[in-house]
C-alpha cells in the first residue's frame, strides 16, 4: 500500500518494485481521477480513491437524514 501524495514518487516506487521482481499485491492511493488514470497507466494494479469514498459516505448519510426530515 502506498499513500505517497505525489505522482513521481509513486511512479519511481512502481518501477523499483518491478525491477526488483516484487510478486505481492500493490495498491496506490490517488488524489483524484486524473492521478488515478496516470497511476493506472504506469501499471498500478489497484488504485484507491479515499476522497471519493469519504464523500460517498457523507452523501449517503446526509441524504438519508434529509429524506427522513422531509417525510415526517
Amino acid at each position: 500500500m502506498s499513500s505517497l501524495p505525489d505522482l513521481d514518487s509513486n511512479r519511481n516506487l512502481l518501477r523499483a518494485l518491478r525491477e526488483h521482481g516484487f510478486a505481492g499485491e500493490i495498491a496506490i492511493v490517488a488524489r483524484d481521477e486524473a492521478q488515478g488514470m496516470a497511476l493506472k497507466q504506469y501499471g498500478a494494479p489497484t488504485v484507491l480513491y479515499p476522497l471519493r469514498n469519504a464523500v460517498d459516505y457523507v452523501v449517503e448519510s446526509l441524504t438519508a437524514i434529509i429524506r427522513q426530515e422531509k417525510t415526517p
Binding site: L51, A54, V55, D56, V58, V59, E60, T63, I66
Partner: peptide
C-alpha cells in the same frame, strides 16, 4: 436543501454527489 461553502477538492465532490443523490 444543502449549502456547501468552500468548493475545493472535497467540497466540490460533495456538492456534486449530493446533487446526484437528488438534493
Amino acid at each position: 436543501d444543502v449549502i456547501v461553502i468552500g468548493l475545493g477538492r472535497y467540497g466540490s465532490r460533495l456538492a456534486l454527489g449530493l446533487k446526484e443523490a437528488g438534493l
